[in-house]
Design a binder for these strands. Structure first.
Lengths: 347, 347
DNA sequence: CTGTTAGCGCCTTCAG
DNA sequence: CTGAAGGCGCTAACAG
């Protein structure tokens, strides 16, 4: 019942198994005569034959499987990314494997081992931290890897990123255009490329607007909800408060809004507005959110997969000698972000 | 460099490949003498040998891989579920594969084919619709399947569900305890078990509270954001409005809040409160949200995996003859929900 | 407890 | 363009 093999097809079609194999090869332009091919395909239909990918993989050393490793799964950006990847992979006959690094470099490393053992053809990684020794190791082992969202110190891998600098720049410029002059930048671990780039964009917009950045209004720190919450609390205690805030990312933004919400509940009347990255179905409900820079997470997934597939193909042709010491060499793809205006602060 | 096989290990350890195989078997209590085992393990270390899972799979017809098929990936419930599954799977040496059915039964079917071709050992499915011919086919093919979130018409599969009836009951009772008497139920496709159960719980609470349900205040329909939005609009046009609302799910809830938000922005002062299912980081920002029934999505993932692993084990022992015509037979695991109070409606 | 021996299902030279 | 034959790396009886 479950054991239809290429052999059965060959018998039914009156050809040899080799011919069947050729006719069923996935990408290659298999050299099989049209009539023969047709006969084979009907036999396949008739028998309900399904290729055994495991056997094929054992021979070809390719599983047609690609993995995504993310710091956490419960995260909008990641899910959109995964959805984008899945679509593109599916179109190429690949399957997506997911793994969670739980925000730990150690765990990330372990996941890598499991995945390479499973012989994934390549992986897309959202780095957990700023460092990445293990990533270097991976690259050295010749596993095609594409980074997404952020770069990693001293690792020369291909990456797909948002144009963070431009995003923060536009966001800040929009606030300036609205007449805000007293603008702060909140959150961000400067060892992480994303934060660094966004801060740079913020600075450029201020400079272009002829505004000297006030050191007190650049509140760096972590990238989580708690960090945003705390930084916002500090800002609320300033004698001179900013009128508008640029949040380094969604989590920090969220924390800031929470703090603001509490403030209002205790009777305060703060009129600050926030500009931040990423949008969700809940953005309309964030009381202070005036602008968002929307990342094209699905698009990034798609691009990452495309590049990864290129690397995989490249490896197959050149691969063998040196374990792909030049696996791409740090090619970076930047995707633009889209600025969206919201009603936040208008209550 | 990359071609360390069991053979090399055998040579290095001075034993036969079969012994190595035994010593390295994953679950089985391999009968290998302790000293021998030690020798083998050091050889493995020394050579940097890594098991070739593909080859193993070809032999054992098990990939130690489990898939999750969801209608959409960008969804809080799913993400938590996946995270729960991943943790549990990892602990058992399994890997998670994800696939998106894009809310289409047709697509769901296609994904199934791909996955079974890949020889996943089993799958957890969040059904896309109420029907599920393909699910029946899967089950018949002997692929272990566990449903999550909802049951499917006429399919006798194991499932892990929230206690929806109790959740809606508690939610409604909480509203009653707050003094609300005029309570409506919003959204829900009654062909879907989840909606049916929740409506039942709502009804029971009303009955227990001695309140005759008002037919006009049961606004069934779809389960998406748009549906909630529209139903809410209709309710706002009633002469006699309810004071409180029970939303069938998060999306409907969200749509309702959106409509309410618009209403307020145009100057209206509605004081309705909403009780709904699921919680997210954004719940504090939903202006009308008073209560949520929090599903333990991660827990459900864990339970689903446990059951699935049981089914897989069962199949391995009994499997062979009839393609597991009794693959569990509709065993249902219910997880309780947790009621949480929020500040919504207090502005 | 350990070794020998067949394949698992497919791909891939190499001849024809 | 097609067929024959030899593994890919590992496991699972069977013997010893």
């Amino acid at each position: 019942m479950k054991g239809q093999t290429i052999r059965d097809v060959a018998a039914a079609a009156g050809v040899s198994i080799a011919t069947v194999s050729r006719a069923l090869a996935p990408d290659k332009a298999a050299r099989v005569a049209e009539p023969t091919r047709r006969r084979i395909h009907s036999a396949v239909e008739a028998l309900g034959y399904r290729t055994n990918h495991t056997a094929r993989s054992l021979k070809t050393r390719s599983t047609r499987t690609v993995a995504i490793v993310a710091p956490e799964l419960a995260n909008d950006f990641f899910m959109d990314l995964a959805e984008g990847m899945e679509g593109e992979l599916d179109a190429h006959g690949y399957t997506l494997l997911i793994a969670c690094s739980a925000n730990s470099g150690e765990e990330e490393k372990k996941r890598f081992s499991v995945l390479t053992d499973r012989m994934v053809d390549g992986m897309v990684v959202i780095p957990a931290g700023a460092r990445g020794e293990h990533l270097k190791v991976m690259a050295a082992r010749g596993v095609p890897v594409v980074l997404v969202d952020r770069l990693v110190e001293g690792v020369n891998l291909d990456a797909v990123l948002s144009d963070n600098e431009a995003g923060a720049f536009e966001l800040t410029r929009a606030l300036l255009a609205d007449g805000y002059r007293r603008i702060a930048f909140v959150g961000g671990d400067i060892t992480i490329s994303t934060a660094r780039e966004r801060l740079a964009g913020f600075g450029r917009a201020l400079a272009e607007g002829g505004i000297r950045p006030e050191p007190d209004w650049i509140r760096l720190g972590g990238m989580g909800v708690e960090d945003g919450y705390r930084r916002m609390g500090a800002i609320l205690n300033f004698r001179r408060r900013p009128e508008a805030l640029v949040a380094v990312n969604l989590l920090v933004h969220l924390g800031m809004e929470r703090r603001l919400l509490e403030d209002r509940r205790s009777g305060e009347r703060n009129a600050m507005v926030i500009a931040g990255f990423d949008e969700t179905a809940y953005t309309p409900f964030l009381p202070a959110c005036r602008y968002t820079a929307v990342q094209d997470a699905a698009g990034m997934g798609k691009q990452a997969v495309r590049r990864l597939l290129e690397l995989i193909a490249l490896k197959r042709t050149q691969g063998g000698a040196e374990p792909a010491k030049e696996t791409g060499g740090g090619r970076i793809i930047r995707l633009p972000v889209r600025i969206v205006r919201h009603r936040g602060g208008l209550f």
